[in-house]
């Protein structure tokens, strides 16, 4: 059998894109949360016991019971309940300059949201400080629609 490449015929090639070629549904609760972010609203969901979970969940982690269908607007201001100062950001981090990962308890919420706080330097970070959400230039329904949290007094 002759080798096709030896007689100048083109080799067969095909493009291969590594991907998950399907869409996932976010479900009723997170869909509402991310649609809210697109519209620059942060929403939590109430549990049967009246606690407001942010980010919202379909089930109350404390009891395993389904959460209610009552959504409430929270924030955009809140309090830093813990923070970690990242002096040397990694390429995959949301900010390319020093920042803090932080847990932010938004006004009206009973749980804290993990996100980033952008203050420029560590000395201006403290537990209990007030921050508010700074929106991305374009919001499309993802967690990065909140570009960062920034000190409230600076905004």
């Amino acid at each position: 059998m002759s080798d096709p490449s030896a007689v100048g015929e083109p080799q067969l090639t095909a493009a291969h894109t590594l991907e998950y070629a399907y869409k996932r549904s976010l479900g009723p609760v997170l869909s509402r949360f991310f649609t809210g972010l697109r519209d620059k609203r942060i929403q939590g969901v109430k549990t049967g016991a009246g606690q407001v979970l942010v980010p919202p969940a379909e089930y109350d982690p404390a009891t395993g019971e389904a959460t209610t269908d009552e959504f409430v607007d929270v924030g955009p201001g809140g309090v830093v309940t813990s923070w970690a100062w990242v002096a040397n950001p990694r390429a995959k981090h949301p900010l390319d300059h020093p920042f803090a990962f932080a847990l932010v308890q938004l006004d009206g919420a009973d749980t804290s949201l993990l996100h980033v706080v952008d203050t420029g330097d560590e000395s201006s970070m403290s537990t209990g400080m007030r921050v508010k959400a700074k929106w991305a230039d374009e919001t499309i329904g993802q967690i990065q629609d909140i570009a960062s949290f920034v000190p409230e007094e600076a905004s």
Binding site: L30, F33, P55, S82, W83, A84, W85, V86, R90, K92, H93, P94, F101, A102, L103, L113, L114, H115, V116, Q142, I143, Q144
Partner: peptide, 15 residues
Amino acid sequence: TVAPLCPDTISMAAL
């Protein structure tokens, strides 16, 4: 809600 921010293990432990 979390993974897109890439909170690495060290940062989470620091929190």
